[in-house]
Design a protein around this nucleic acid. Structure first.
Lengths: 248, 248
DNA sequence: CGTAGTTTTGATGTCAGTCAAAATGTGTGG
DNA sequence: CCACACATTTTGACTGACATCAAAACTACG
């Protein structure tokens, strides 16, 4: 999903209010922009970083979408999450300075490279930036908690519906349609993320399609009845994956 | 689990190197100690805070243990995690300033109250404290990722073994035995955390007991063969719930 | 148009959930 | 110290949702 020209710097970036600059004054945003370097371009299936790599920078999604996952010694993967424009990747590295998961591009995309040492320095100079980092980290934690709830005691149907609502909300927050979008990930990625098999995901999507709640055709998804979809996850916590709301 | 006198302040606290003061100079620890107030005592089943409450403070476990969970409108719960001494609770509130989960004492315990506004101020004054906050937040995220892996594609036996290893590691890091300990949570809490039922957890523990790998008697657990227990989770990511290692 | 990758559909098996009851533990008052 | 009530844990029999295995249909790309 193309959103903003990859060359646009923080002060001109349409994603600024969803990203690190949120809440900063114009001159502070300029300071931040000075440390952000090398807007890196990635092709489909290209790795942004690999589990175990030393972390020099965090990465903000400029365009495209990404998948992060943890692999075990057998090569078996667990998808941890998907990243859309405006979201910050690599926060898991803050503990030891190494990435604990790998991140790969689901489609052609671009990221902003935010050097960690410079970011830490700037956080002491700009209190608002430190606050915003805390907000973003809190958001990541809440999103992860929502995933724990998702995987804990949900049926295949509830998981599938929750997944669609999660994307709907996030696309909407980005200014796109929240009822019609293309999935950038394969069925295998969705299934793995939801703790299911591709067959089960396929069957659940087929049934939602048959009931008329959604219309699926390969990667294309149209939500025909958001309320019915929400009703499926009704007996869910507070709100489905609420961490995807814009910061406010 | 009693660990240190509840009245001990940061500079004298045995948990300091597992908690916020890690990596700070003596005078910085004193500054931190000045903002930490009201060491609060809680009895079994007493709530520390409730989902939706406005967050004024983060809480560090001084003694005892705690369970945090998310409840939905039906009252159904998903346990998000357990907290042992030295761990910081309430990090999920950093996004919007409200707790997104509830936290309850599993036994008599004490917490240190760390006012959030003062902590933020101090983070700009003491760069090392800001770094340590980032480390703690990164640790929380990695721990949550491990839980996602745990719930994603694991069998009941693997989940149960992982749970025991997780506690073993954390008790060990605290200076206690990593092979003999008492569970402070009920079977219901374990089952809920692992995305299983109490019957299944009971059966899995019974089988591990029958195989001689562990000896369970109600709340008491003795691990007779750590390697066999690890072998059960062998085909797992990197290391089981590695986020529970001490910061180093 | 042909090959490889992805998704869908169908038939069967199994692990964990559900229902039910017994066993064990915990606390209270006499 | 015992008796009783209540909560927690264990054990057993049965069921069901999702996984597994297998093959067909669809898509994409050279």
């Amino acid at each position: 999903m193309e959103f903003a020209p990859a060359r646009a710097s923080c002060p001109d970036c349409r994603l600024a209010d969803l990203c690190l600059p949120y809440g900063l004054h114009a001159n502070e945003v300029k300071q931040l922009a000075r440390i952000v370097k090398n807007k890196r371009l990635l092709k489909t299936d290209e790795y942004l970083y690999v589990q175990g790599d030393e972390c020099q920078s965090l990465y903000a999604v400029k365009s495209g979408s990404f998948r992060s996952f943890i692999a075990n010694s057998d090569g078996a993967e667990q998808t941890i999450g998907f990243y859309l424009p405006g979201e910050l990747m690599g926060l898991d590295s803050l503990q030891y300075g190494r990435f604990t998961c790998s991140t790969v591009a689901l489609e052609t995309g671009a990221v902003c490279d935010v050097p960690l040492s410079r970011l830490n320095e700037l956080c002491t100079e700009i209190p608002g930036l430190q606050i915003q980092m805390m907000r973003i980290l809190g958001k990541e934690i809440v999103a992860d908690h929502d995933k724990i709830v998702l995987l804990g005691h949900r049926t295949a149907k509830e998981r599938t519906a929750t997944f669609l609502l999660m994307l709907s909300r996030r696309y909407g927050a980005l200014g796109f349609s929240n009822t019609a979008f293309n999935l950038s990930m394969r069925r295998q990625d969705i299934a793995n993320f939801l703790g299911l098999t591709i067959e089960t995901v396929s069957r659940q999507l087929a049934e939602l399609n048959k009931q008329g709640i959604i219309t699926v055709k390969q990667r294309g998804v149209q939500i025909n009845d958001l309320d019915l979809l929400r009703a499926i996850v009704e007996h869910c916590p507070t709100q489905p994956l609420c961490a995807e709301q814009p910061l406010s």
